[in-house]
Simulated scan of single mutants.
Amino acid sequence: MNAQLSPLAPPSAPASLTDAELVRSGQNVFAIEARALESLTPRLDGAFAAACRLMLACSGRVVTIGMGKSGHIARKIAATMASTGTPAFYVHPGEASHGDLGMITDADVVLALSNSGETDEVLTIVPVLRRQGNKVVAMTGRPGSSLATLADVHLDVSVDEEACPLGLAPTTSTTAALVMGDALAVALLEARGFTAEDFARSHPAGSLGRRLLLHISDVMHAGEAVPKVAASVSISEALVEMSRKRLGMTAVVGDDDALLGVFTDGDLRRALDNPGFDLRSTPVVDAMTRSPKTIGADRLAVEAAQLMESHKISALLVVDEAQRVVGALNIHDLLRARVV
Rank of each mutant, 00 (worst) to 15 (best):
V240L: 11
P10V: 15
L213I: 04
L213G: 10
D286P: 07
D156H: 12
G117P: 01
D256Q: 07
A74K: 02
R246G: 00
L123D: 06
M308V: 05
D152I: 15
G141T: 04
V233F: 08
S12W: 03
R338H: 12
A305M: 05
P292H: 13
S39N: 15
D106P: 00
E321S: 15
R211V: 10
F194W: 10
A287K: 01
G248C: 05
S314V: 14
A49H: 14
D267L: 02
L111R: 01
A148K: 01
D45K: 13
N2R: 12
M81E: 00
A200V: 05
S116H: 11
T18P: 07
K135G: 05
L40D: 03
T149L: 11
G46H: 13
T282L: 08
E309C: 08
S25H: 14
A187Y: 06
D267S: 05
T18W: 13
P283H: 09
A176F: 03
A297V: 04
L8D: 07
A51F: 03
A13P: 03
C164I: 06
S114M: 02
S6Y: 06
V153D: 04
G248T: 03
D100C: 03
L22F: 11
K245Q: 06
P143F: 08
E309K: 10
V219D: 04
G276H: 02
L8C: 09
D286R: 13
T195G: 14
T289W: 10
T175V: 11
E161H: 13
S114A: 08
E224T: 14
T84R: 05
G99R: 08
L214P: 00
V284W: 00
L214D: 02
D120I: 13
H203R: 09
S234C: 12
G223W: 10
L168K: 07
G60L: 07
A82N: 11
K135H: 11
E162A: 06
P11A: 14
L147W: 02
L272T: 10
V109I: 09
E309N: 14
L279M: 14
Q323A: 11
T175N: 03
G266C: 05
H154D: 07
A191Y: 08
P165T: 11
V63W: 00
V63E: 00
A96I: 04
F194V: 02
L300C: 08
Q27H: 09
G181Q: 01
G117A: 11
P275T: 09
E161C: 13
S236A: 14
A50P: 01
A301N: 04
N274P: 00
M180I: 04
T86N: 07
K69L: 01
K312I: 08
P42W: 12
H332Y: 11
G206L: 06
T172D: 05
A205E: 07
P204M: 09
L239D: 01
E241V: 03
A337P: 03
D100F: 02
G167N: 14
